[in-house]
Computed example of a mutant assay.
Amino acid sequence: MPIGLTTLTFDTIAWPVVSPPRSPESLTTRRIEAFLLSALHSGEATRAQRLRNAMRIWHPDKWEGSWIWLVEERDKARVMEGVAKVARALSELLNAESW
């Protein structure tokens, strides 16, 4: 890693929930929905736009290709588990949105 570059850990990532999660298990659909679909978040965007924008950030392939190299080795599995949980929750919410 280049000198001066900050590394990430599970605890330093800005997960899409109101309060920091303690573990990947605490990244629930309900908590993610409460954050992303709050009236205080992206007020101009529709619900579907907010969810699609979040999926662009939290898609596991995006993380594997763009961000995982910044994560400390000891936290990589935990971070990818969290990213997968967020992506599954977003998929659920997007599917519900299309009904």
Rank of each mutant, 00 (worst) to 15 (best):
P24W: 04
E25M: 14
E25D: 11
S26E: 12
L27D: 02
T28D: 08
T28K: 11
R31V: 11
A34I: 10
F35K: 14
L37K: 03
A39E: 15
L40M: 14
L40E: 15
S42W: 00
S42A: 02
S42G: 02
G43H: 01
G43R: 03
T46C: 02
T46N: 00
T46A: 08
T46L: 10
Q49D: 13
L51Q: 05
R52I: 15
R52T: 13
N53H: 05
I57S: 07
W58V: 14
W58I: 12
H59L: 09
H59P: 08
H59W: 13
D61F: 02
K62Y: 10
K62R: 14
K62Q: 15
E64A: 14
G65Y: 11
S66K: 14
S66Q: 13
S66W: 07
I68G: 05
L70I: 08
L70N: 06
V71C: 02
E72L: 11
E72G: 04
E72M: 04
R74N: 11
R74W: 01
K76V: 10
K76I: 08
K76T: 05
K76S: 06
A77N: 13
A77H: 11
R78E: 01
V79C: 09
V79R: 08
M80Y: 12
E81V: 07
V83K: 01
V83F: 00
A84G: 08
A84W: 01
A84T: 15
A84D: 09
K85A: 14
K85R: 15
V86R: 03
A87V: 10
